[in-house]
């Protein structure tokens, strides 16, 4: 079975989208021929678009941007909608990670991807909305099914099973197994460390610059 794992994060490294695809891959790789693709620009090279059309399943993994799909990936989807698909028996799955704790906040981004499937006449296989994505890159590696990522691992395992069976799943919304109030504190410590590393002060986070 030919499956494309498509990383739709604009980040060049350490993206939560990539981490989630790595985890999904660990559940798939023995039984499938995996192609890994990064879409970081507003345009898909013709050879990549051609390769995607030869797959049996496409899995898009991307971060939630302003409740939706990052703009560069949206441009790529429009390009793919207008491409000539000889085989439309291709299952499309989505994995959306969001910085908020609640995975359900990815609901409308998954709906947009589902609506794209309808327009492109491909088969919507279902998705995962993963909350707490902002912390994924900083979490220690644990065995699948253990640690804060356990609920997400479980959802990825279930999705892998569906992909390998050419089946659909309902959208599944999960969060990291880490209390929301601690996640919020950890994120806020992170922003303070980052602004200090850039030579700023904590109070600068709330700056209100005047327009030029």
């Amino acid at each position: 079975m030919k499956i494309a794992l498509i990383n739709g994060s604009p980040k060049t490294k350490n993206s939560a989208s990539g981490i989630l695809l790595e985890d999904l891959k660990s559940h798939l790789s023995q039984k499938a021929e995996i192609t890994e693709i990064k879409l970081q620009k507003t345009f898909i090279p013709e050879e990549i678009a051609a390769e995607l059309k030869t797959m049996e399943a496409l899995v898009f993994s991307f971060p939630l941007y302003v409740d939706g799909i990052p703009a560069h990936l949206l441009s790529c989807l429009i390009q793919l909608e207008n491409a000539h698909w000889q085989n439309r028996e291709i299952y499309i799955y989505g994995i959306v990670n969001c910085g908020f704790h609640e995975g359900v906040q990815a609901k409308y981004a998954l709906e947009i991807l589902q609506n794209w499937c309808k327009k492109t006449e491909l088969i919507w296989g279902g998705g995962i909305g993963a909350g707490g994505g902002g912390g994924l890159a900083n979490m220690p590696s644990t065995k699948n099914g253990h640690g804060p990522k356990a609920p997400i691992d479980k959802a990825l395992q279930a999705m892998a099973d569906k992909i390998l069976q050419n089946k659909r799943q309902k959208n599944h919304y999960v969060s990291v197994a880490f209390p929301r109030f601690l996640y919020r504190i950890a994120a806020q410590i992170g922003w303070r460390q980052m602004i200090k590393a850039n030579g700023g002060k904590t109070k600068d986070l709330g700056k209100r610059p005047e327009e030029p």
Partner: peptide
């Protein structure tokens, strides 16, 4: 576009998260 805005409008929105503060 599929129930959302177009790539141009979305790009402007994506680039404007500075309207809000990073804290939760």
């Amino acid at each position: 576009c599929y129930g959302g805005v177009s790539p141009f409008v979305k790009t402007v929105q994506d680039r404007a998260i500075s309207y809000i503060h990073p804290d939760f």
